[in-house]
């Protein structure tokens, strides 16, 4: 049967392919482990009674509120994760001092911008982590995320010129690269390196004016 030219083509690569059995099981184990850790931390003491009751609570929670599938193709790179963490802590301090200074600075109204940045790796996990980290590093706040294209819409505070906005775009992609270096798969690392010259923001050719 000839394809109907009017219907748009199916996207060749869905952003969230269905998970394999082993991936689903691994996700459940990871979720379970974290829920048990939270449970034990809430009780404050490590005892087998706490761990076992935590396992029961986690099993019930996961059965009643199943988690959406998360594709995690990579593995944790300790060195990359450490570098991301240190840089993140530094950024958090810089961001807080910057906002505090902006707040106390007399007679100054900060200008801002809203930019769209298309991430190079379009997975839910990367989108989420980048958005979360962005909100805590200097200047940026996540405003909206487009899951289909992997685009983040970011509010940038304290920019004075379009050149600074462009510079900020590069910083977002650098943050994404650090996250991928911490938890990415070889395939995702390759994608980031291949796209190290950042793509144009978002094509707006189809925009209705």
């Amino acid at each position: 049967m000839k394809p109907d030219p009017m219907t748009p083509a199916e996207p060749t690569e869905p952003p969230n392919p269905p998970l394999s059995r082993t991936a689903r099981r691994r996700n459940r184990i990871v979720a379970m482990t974290f829920l048990v850790i939270v449970w034990v931390l809430l009780w404050g003491t490590f005892s087998w009674a706490n761990v076992i009751s935590g396992l029961v609570v986690a099993a019930i929670l996961l059965a009643v509120f199943p988690l959406p599938p998360v594709t995690f193709a990579g593995r944790v790179h300790p060195w990359g994760a450490l570098r991301f963490l240190l840089r993140f802590l530094r950024d958090l301090v810089v961001a807080s001092v910057q906002i505090a200074w902006l707040a106390l600075r007399p007679r100054h109204i900060p200008r801002s911008a809203i930019i769209a940045v298309k991430l190079r790796v379009n997975s839910d996990l990367n989108l989420t982590l980048t958005a979360e980290a962005l909100s805590l590093v200097p200047g940026s706040l996540i405003l909206e995320a487009d899951r289909n294209t992997g685009t983040l819409f970011i509010h940038v505070i304290n920019v004075d010129s379009l050149a600074e906005v462009e510079k900020f775009r590069h910083e977002v992609l650098a943050l994404e690269a650090r996250i991928i270096a911490a938890i990415g798969s070889p395939e995702e690392l390759r994608q980031v390196r291949a796209g190290s010259t950042p793509p144009p923001p978002v094509d707006l050719e189809g925009a209705t004016t």
Partner: peptide, 18 residues
């Protein structure tokens, strides 16, 4: 008036157009 650029507005316009 304090925004230098707003790329989300263009995106929302496009979605509405589609």
């Amino acid at each position: 008036d304090l925004l230098l650029t707003d790329e989300l507005a263009a995106h929302l316009d496009r979605v509405a157009g589609e």
